[in-house]
Design a protein around this nucleic acid. Structure first.
Length: 301
DNA sequence: GACCAGGGTAACT
DNA sequence: AGTTACCATGGT
């Protein structure tokens, strides 16, 4: 018990960048912020809660996976945090495509594209439409607390009363009424959530089948869900299925790409096609560095 | 109150 | 094929 799994001198990794860049929503920061370079988070993934701590190290950061056995890190968290991938190579390829990205990457050089749970990613990004990140987190928490399986709250640092449950399974969401779903304050997205839960519950949409399809075909399949369009499908492909040859274009990406690459108003589809051609299979990574940069500096607002 | 938010749909040209 | 009103909800 209380065995920690520790990795020293991790490069190209910063918990703040990884978690606060708008790719995932079911976590809470628990450190006080008073110790320089120290960050702590509780993260909920499938049926597990991870307490993770980051400290400065001599060359990179030290990651402490609290109460985690070796097998659990190897089987679960290594792929979740994309820790097997060489991000220095990814960064080089992005900078090769556009040297101006070097400074942008440097501002949030600890970003990792997480490999999240497929169903949670699908529902979370359906919720994300026309909402700000703090509100998305709120609705995800509400949905979990109302309809998901509760976890033992003595296991966590209880900062928020809503942070007390795993994300609902497709089964749990399918068996909920629209009124129960609306309690989460998801608003007009409730029928979208119902349709997504039904299609996953019945197997009409399955992670296994999507994994076999090309990125283009998988996107078309995802868009058969009521309430899933280009942007949400791209986010599910990128953050839930590991397809890095995608370039989700939201209002922020539209603004920053118009600022960097176009003269005036440009459609999202044109921006997406341009970026796919420019960045290829590292487009998803490039998108995330650009997104965080655009938000931080409020480009185009 | 008007306007906007990690958009999508339906109903228009 | 390309626009536009509307969709709940919360924040500025």
């Amino acid at each position: 018990m209380n065995k920690n799994y520790v990795i020293e001198n991790v490069k190209d990794f910063h918990l703040y960048d990884v978690l606060e860049c708008g790719q995932c929503f079911h976590f809470q920061r628990t450190d006080t912020g008073v110790s320089p370079g120290v960050f702590e988070y509780d993260i909920v993934f499938r049926d597990r809660i991870l307490h993770i701590k980051e400290e400065p190290d001599s060359d990179g950061v030290r990651l402490i996976f609290e109460n985690t056995e070796d097998w659990e890190y190897q089987a679960i968290w290594k792929s979740y945090f994309d820790l097997d991938r060489d991000y220095s190579e990814i960064k080089s390829r992005i900078i090769e495509a556009d040297p101006r990205l070097e400074e942008i990457i440097e501002e949030h050089n600890g970003i990792r594209i997480l490999k999240q749970d497929f169903f949670e990613t699908l529902i979370s990004f359906i919720i994300s439409q026309n909402k700000q990140i703090p509100q998305i987190k709120q609705v995800v928490n509400n949905l979990s607390s109302d309809l998901g399986t509760k976890f033992d709250v003595t296991m966590i640092n209880r900062l928020s009363s809503e942070f007390d449950a795993f994300f609902p399974t497709a089964d749990q969401l399918y068996n909920a009424t629209e009124e129960e779903i609306r309690l989460s304050k998801c608003g007009f997205r409730a029928p979208y959530i119902k349709d997504a839960a039904e299609k996953v519950y019945t197997g009409e949409i399955s992670e296994k089948e999507l994994s076999r399809l090309s990125t283009f075909d998988a996107k078309q399949k995802l868009m058969t869900i009521y309430g899933v369009g280009e942007k949400v499908a791209n986010c599910v492909l990128l953050f839930g299925l590991g397809r890095t040859d995608t370039f989700p274009v939201d209002v922020w990406m539209k603004r920053i790409c118009e600022y960097m690459y176009f003269d005036g108003d440009t459609s999202k589809s044109e921006i997406e096609a341009f970026a796919m051609d420019k960045f290829g299979d590292v487009a998803g990574y490039a998108q995330q560095y650009l997104f965080m940069y655009g938000q931080k500096h409020k480009i185009g607002t």
